[in-house]
Design a protein around this nucleic acid. Structure first.
Lengths: 121, 121
DNA sequence: TTATTGTATCAGCAATTAATGATATGATGA
DNA sequence: TCATCATATCATTAATTGCTGATACAATAA
């Protein structure tokens, strides 16, 4: 439990990062970097199931990272802010330096961890 | 499940963000922004328990976000890379714009969510 | 209206994760 | 050596989270 003030600010940041801390959501954001896409397009491009995609989109919406616009029976999503690209780029720059450390991090597992042993960086 | 290649890159990013997606760890990183600190200093400054702090430090270490240096019986931790500050700053800039959305995100809860109802932004 | 297509929601499950308390290790000083 | 202080690890627990399948809702077309 945190002691001091500023807890809310920290929680906000944590929430933002948590929105970004999932491969599926990052894949969606990656798709949206190229421009607005409908849900079915996102489903096809990411390979996620429809309901799963919808859930992640709802999450990203709630977190303010994407915006939606309905067109007929399609719903198009797009990045809500250009700064999101910047954040992802900054993250990649950081990764370029700490990649090995992150790659070997054992505290959280991701779906790529199967490759981990056989396919060293 | 993700379809295409680039999965590893996405997982790496996800892992990095997950390392940042916790209030306690962000609090620790915040403390370390001012410079190296020993574990006991971090414990005192964050209000986290000793074992909890140690666990989070291990996580941040594994993820390559911090580095450690032993001095006597103290262990000092510091940010491993200046870019981490940049990432946190970029995140704050983004938050300045999407704060309301993130604040109202219901998909993930944080310890500040108790205030949420009573203390609207 | 009815059928169809696109999207959202819901319940349940499996897995992950943060926190705690207890204990172990490691370094220093008496 | 022994006691003490600083840090790390371990087992357990409670809570969160992602995914799936089923179903509901919404918009268009027939």
């Amino acid at each position: 439990m945190l002691l001091n003030s500023g807890v809310t600010a920290l929680s906000l940041r944590a929430k933002l990062f948590r929105g970004l801390a999932d491969s599926s959501r990052l894949a969606i954001l990656d798709v949206l970097r190229a421009g607005p896409r409908s849900v079915s397009q996102i489903v096809e491009l990411t390979g996620l199931s429809q309901s799963n995609t919808s859930n992640h989109l709802a999450c990203l919406m709630d977190c303010g990272l994407i915006a939606r616009e309905q067109q007929g029976r399609y719903v198009f999503y797009r990045l809500s802010d250009e700064k999101i690209k910047g954040l992802l780029e900054t993250a990649d720059e950081l990764l370029a330096e700490v990649a090995r450390g992150v790659y070997e991090c054992t505290h959280y597992t991701t779906e790529s961890d199967q490759d981990h042993k056989e396919n060293q960086i």
